[in-house]
Computed example of a mutant assay.
Amino acid sequence: MYALLWLFDTVVQLFIYVLIASAVLSWLVAFNVVNVRNPIVSQIGEVLYRLTEPVLRPIRSILPNLGGIDLSPIVLVLLLLFVSRLLHEVIPPQTVVYGG
């Protein structure tokens, strides 16, 4: 069971990195630092969008419209960390007994 908890934590951590990368890329595109006509930038943006948008869309529909500020990635990161901590409290760490 502890191995599944470790796997869940690892997947959550990787998804948080993807969320951060998506937010940073959106800022770079918004401030014209990178050009979306570049095929590599376009492909990276498309992959990040397809990975994050299905999870962020329901959060965006709940949050109020704040103009140009999108708080949905922050809310999602907080929710993921909360669920991870909650699972750590529910599943106690195993004690390992060596040899006998």
Rank of each mutant, 00 (worst) to 15 (best):
G67E: 05
L56Q: 05
V18T: 04
Y98F: 15
E89D: 11
P54K: 05
R57M: 08
L7E: 11
L4Y: 12
S26A: 13
R50Q: 10
N65S: 05
L4Q: 10
I62G: 03
L48F: 06
V33K: 05
V41R: 02
L79Y: 01
W27M: 11
S61N: 13
I44S: 04
L81M: 11
A30Y: 05
F15P: 01
Y98S: 10
V97W: 14
A21Q: 08
W6D: 14
L25I: 05
T95V: 15
R50F: 02
L14M: 11
P73E: 00
P73Y: 00
Q43C: 07
N35D: 01
N38W: 01
P64Y: 07
Y98R: 14
L4S: 09
Y98D: 12
L80M: 12
V18H: 02
P93K: 12
P39A: 10
V34Y: 00
L4G: 11
L87E: 06
L14Q: 13
V75H: 00
Q43R: 15
R60V: 08
V18Y: 00
W6P: 04
V24T: 13
W6R: 15
V90M: 10
F82R: 01
S72K: 04
V41S: 00
L25C: 03
F8W: 06
S26F: 04
L80T: 04
E89V: 12
I16N: 03
L5Q: 14
V29D: 00
L7P: 08
V24W: 09
G45L: 02
P39V: 06
A23P: 07
G67W: 00
G45N: 09
W27G: 07
F15Q: 02
R85C: 08
S26C: 08
S84V: 04
T95G: 13
N38E: 03
A21G: 10
V55I: 12
V36E: 07
L19S: 02
S26V: 06
L51P: 06
S72P: 01
P64T: 05
V47E: 09
L71P: 05
S22I: 05
F82K: 03
V96D: 08
Y2E: 15
G99L: 13
V47H: 07
D70I: 00
L51S: 08
L87Y: 07
R37I: 05
G68Q: 07
L25K: 10
V33E: 01
G45P: 09
F31N: 11
L5K: 15
S61D: 11
D9S: 15
V12A: 12
P58L: 03
E53W: 06
L71S: 02
L28I: 01
N32Q: 14
L66D: 03
N38A: 08
S26D: 13
L25Q: 12
V90T: 03
E46N: 11
V77Y: 00
F8K: 06
V34N: 07
L87Q: 06
V77N: 00
N35K: 01
M1E: 04
I59T: 02
V12T: 11
V36M: 14
Y49E: 08
D70W: 00
V36L: 13
V75R: 03
I69H: 02
L48H: 09
G99F: 15
G68E: 03
V90Q: 13
F82I: 07
L28Q: 04
S72H: 00
L78Q: 08
L71V: 06
L66H: 09
L78T: 03
L87W: 03
Y49L: 05
